Simulated assay, not measured.
Amino acid sequence: MTARNKGNKNTLKTYAAVGLGGALGAGLRYVIGMGALQTLGPLFPWATLAVNVIGSGLIAWLATQARQHPQGHVSRWHHFWLAGFCGGFTTFSLFSLEALLLWQRNQAVLALLYVLLSVSGWLIAAYIGQRLSASKT
């Protein structure tokens, strides 16, 4: 096998890892969304808030772990988790739509509360994820 063919094979495996991770992340996001809707109702987008906070902490923890590998080596598992799972799990596009819809329904206070809780939650979770990962070295 030539170096070029081996590189293509590794690239295809990486794409497959990202795709599988994305499918699993999106599937879990859907389950959480349906559960929150049934449990808490449609007044406030709790599920999106929760998955974005959890995803922010997880992606920061994983990225910090990846940086700790010698010479910046990133395994296929990191592609699976960071680009795949976290990318499929978090919902920033849905977040923007939900904030806009709250605003358009004349629920400006809820829209602002949602944006403030989301952004501060993501940043705090990312900081905690990074600190937790860095403290294990």
Rank of each mutant, 00 (worst) to 15 (best):
H69C: 13
L100Y: 06
H79V: 06
R76E: 04
T64F: 07
R76S: 06
L82G: 08
Q65H: 10
G84H: 06
Q68N: 02
G84S: 10
H69G: 09
G87L: 03
H73R: 15
F85S: 01
L97Q: 12
A99L: 09
H73K: 13
L97F: 15
F89D: 00
C86P: 03
G84M: 03
E98G: 03
H73A: 13
T91L: 06
H79K: 06
S96E: 06
A83G: 11
W81E: 00
W77L: 09
F95Q: 03
C86R: 02
Q71W: 12
S96L: 05
W81Q: 00
W77E: 03
W77T: 04
S96A: 12
L97D: 15
Q71N: 14
F89C: 01
T91N: 05
F95M: 07
H69M: 15
S75L: 05
S96C: 10
L82W: 07
F89A: 00
L100N: 03
Q65A: 08
R76D: 03
Q65Y: 05
F85C: 02
L100S: 04
R67M: 10
Q65I: 08
Q65V: 09
V74F: 13
H78Q: 10
L82M: 15
L101T: 05
G88P: 00
W77A: 05
V74E: 14
C86I: 11
Q68A: 04
A83R: 09
G72T: 11
T64D: 08
G72H: 12
E98A: 02
S93N: 12
G84Q: 01
V74K: 12
G88T: 02
A66V: 13
W81P: 00
S96R: 02
S75F: 09
G84D: 01
G72C: 13
F80L: 14
C86E: 02
Q71S: 14
F85H: 04
L82T: 05
A83I: 13
G88M: 01
A83N: 09
A83W: 08
P70S: 14
T90P: 07
W81V: 00
L100W: 11
L94P: 03
G84F: 04
Q65P: 07
H73C: 09
T90N: 08
G72V: 13
H78L: 05
R76Y: 05
F89M: 00
L101Q: 11
F89R: 02
L100D: 03
G88I: 01
T64Q: 13
A83L: 14
F92P: 08
L82H: 05
L94V: 13
C86S: 07
G84Y: 05
E98H: 06
L101A: 05
G87I: 02
F92L: 14
H73M: 14
A83Q: 11
H78N: 07
S75R: 07
S93F: 13
H79Y: 12
F92Y: 15
A66I: 11
C86W: 03
G72F: 10
F80Y: 14
